[in-house]
Design a protein around this nucleic acid. Structure first.
Lengths: 180, 180
DNA sequence: GTCATCATGTAATCTGTTACATGATTTC
DNA sequence: GAAATCATGTAACAGATTACATGATGAC
C-alpha cells in the first residue's frame, strides 16, 4: 500500500517529526524539548503543536498512545513510524523541499543524514547567498552617492554585512566538515 | 471626532502607507515601487496589496480616486490622508510598535523621521542583539565539546556570526549618524 | 496561600500566498 | 504572431498566533 504524501508537510510538522525521531514525546514535552534545543531558530505555539500531532497520526507518520497518570493529567505520547522516518529523511535530503528558510532547521537535524548531504546543502545555499551579495553590491553602486536613498543604502549594507558573515560562517563549517 | 485606530495595522498596511507617504500610487504601481525599493526586505503578493488598499480607505488612512484611461485599463489611485501620515509616523516613532522584524522596514523609512529616533531604535535593537549574543555564547560553552550536539553547535555559530555582523554594522551606522 | 508546573485542547482571528479570471495594448 | 506590460481583483487555502477553558499538584 503506497500511502501517498498528499500535501507536502509544513515546517512545524517536519520539525516535530524530527524531534520525534530522537524519541517519543507528548505534546507538552515537545514544546519543552523544542525550546531547549531548536528554540532560538524555531519555536511554535503550543496550540499549534497540539493541532499538528493528530494530523501526523492520520497521515500515518506517527502513532499515539494514552498514558494514564495518577498524580498528573493523562498524557498522549507520540512515536514516529517507519513511514514518518522515511518522510523526514526524504525532506532532509531533498535540497529543494520546503520553504527556503528551512535551511537552518535542516542543518540542525544534520545528525540524521550524511555529511555529504549536509555539505551539499551548505554549498548550494552558499552559492545563493553569494549571488544575492553580488546583486546587493550592484545596487550599492547605484545608491551609494544618492543622498535621498541614504536609508535604503543603510538597510542594504545590513544585508551585505549579513551575507558576508554568512559566507565566512559557511567556509568555516565546510572546512570543518571536510576533516570529518 | 477621534477615529480610534481599532486593530493595530499589519506590516503590509504600514509599508504601503510608507510608500504612499512619498506620493500617490495605484495598486499596480505600488507593487513595482515596492520591488524596486524595499523589495529585498519586504515584497508582498499583488493580491495582498489589492486587499489592503480598500481597508486603508475605510480606516480613513487613504483616499482613492478613479482615473479613467483610454488606451489602458482604468486605474484607482490612492493618496495618503493626514491621519494616515499621523498613524505612519506614530508607528515609525514607537520603538515597541509592530512585530520585532519590522526593524529594517522602519529603518528604510528613516527619512520620514528624525535622526534621533533612528539612532534610538538602532541602539535599542543593538542592546537586544548584544543580549542574544551573550545568551548564545553561554549556550556555546555547554555545547562546544558535546559531539552529539555538533549540528546544534553549528547552527548556534551561525547565530553568533550573524549577531556579530549585526553589531559591527550597527556601530558603523551609529558612527555615521553621529556625524550628521 | 500563591505561584509555577504538568497536561490538553478549542475557537477565533490574522496575515499572507497561490491560483484563477479577464482583456486590451505595445513591443519585439 | 508571441510575449510582456498595464491593470484589477476574487476565491481558496495555509500556516500560525492569541485568547479562552480547565484543573490538580508540588514547591516556596
Amino acid at each position: 500500500m503506497a500511502t501517498a504524501t498528499r500535501t507536502r508537510l509544513s515546517t512545524t510538522e517536519l520539525a516535530i517529526l524530527g524531534l520525534l525521531s530522537y524519541g517519543e514525546h507528548s505534546g507538552y514535552e515537545l514544546k519543552k524539548v523544542a525550546e531547549a534545543s531548536v528554540g532560538y531558530l524555531w519555536s511554535p505555539a503550543k496550540s499549534h503543536i497540539y493541532a499538528v500531532l493528530p494530523r501526523l497520526v492520520t497521515a500515518g507518520l506517527a502513532t499515539a498512545r494514552e498514558v494514564p497518570q495518577r498524580t498528573r493529567p493523562d498524557k498522549r505520547i507520540y512515536r514516529i513510524t517507519a513511514q514518518g522516518r522515511r518522510v523526514f529523511r526524504d525532506w532532509l535530503e531533498d535540497p529543494g523541499a520546503g520553504p527556503p528558510n528551512t535551511f537552518l532547521l535542516k542543518l540542525f537535524f544534520g545528525r540524521k543524514t550524511s555529511t555529504e548531504t549536509v555539505v551539499a546543502r551548505i554549498e548550494r545555499r552558499r552559492a545563493e547567498v553569494e549571488a544575492e551579495l553580488a546583486e546587493y553590491r550592484s545596487i550599492e553602486d547605484l545608491v551609494r552617492d544618492d543622498e535621498s536613498s541614504y536609508f535604503g543604502y543603510v538597510t542594504l549594507r545590513w544585508g551585505i554585512a549579513q551575507a558576508e558573515a554568512w559566507l565566512r560562517w559557511a567556509d568555516e563549517i565546510l572546512a570543518e566538515l571536510a576533516l570529518r
